[in-house]
Design a protein around this nucleic acid. Structure first.
Length: 106
DNA sequence: TCGAAGGCGTAAC
DNA sequence: GGTTACGCCTTCG
């Protein structure tokens, strides 16, 4: 396991704040941790998450509503999201904006 | 309005 | 200093 940076901890902590049935995006996470141009880094950080049950990185999708990637396979990611009530249609989140969790209004 | 393609910034290793 | 990473945005048909 790689050493966790402060950015890791910030991102993982934010993941726990996502309510059930909601998703967020890499871009939003990047903004919240004050690294607005670091969305790719966010994805990398999530892939380094060794505790998917503790930190639900599957709740993070791309800003256009597409699934994005997942360390344990996109299919697994879809299954987990469906369990939370997120429906996928043509590789995109159905009613994406409705399910989008925005950290800014906390 | 929608999908596909291409170019691109950042930090850890 | 090069490679890598679960992406974003713009353009075009």
């Amino acid at each position: 396991m790689r050493r966790l940076t402060k950015l890791h901890q910030k991102v993982y902590n934010l993941l726990k704040k996502i309510p059930k049935g909601k998703v967020t995006t890499y871009k939003i996470l990047a903004r919240v941790v004050n690294r607005p141009k670091n969305w790719r880094e966010i994805g990398k950080i999530l892939s380094q998450n060794s505790y998917p049950q503790k930190y639900p990185c599957y709740k993070v999708v791309r800003s256009d509503g597409k699934i994005g990637g997942y360390k344990f396979g996109v299919k697994k990611k879809i299954v987990l999201l469906k369990r939370d009530g997120i429906i996928f249609k043509k590789n995109k989140v159905f009613n994406f904006k409705k399910h989008l969790f925005n950290f800014f209004y906390e």
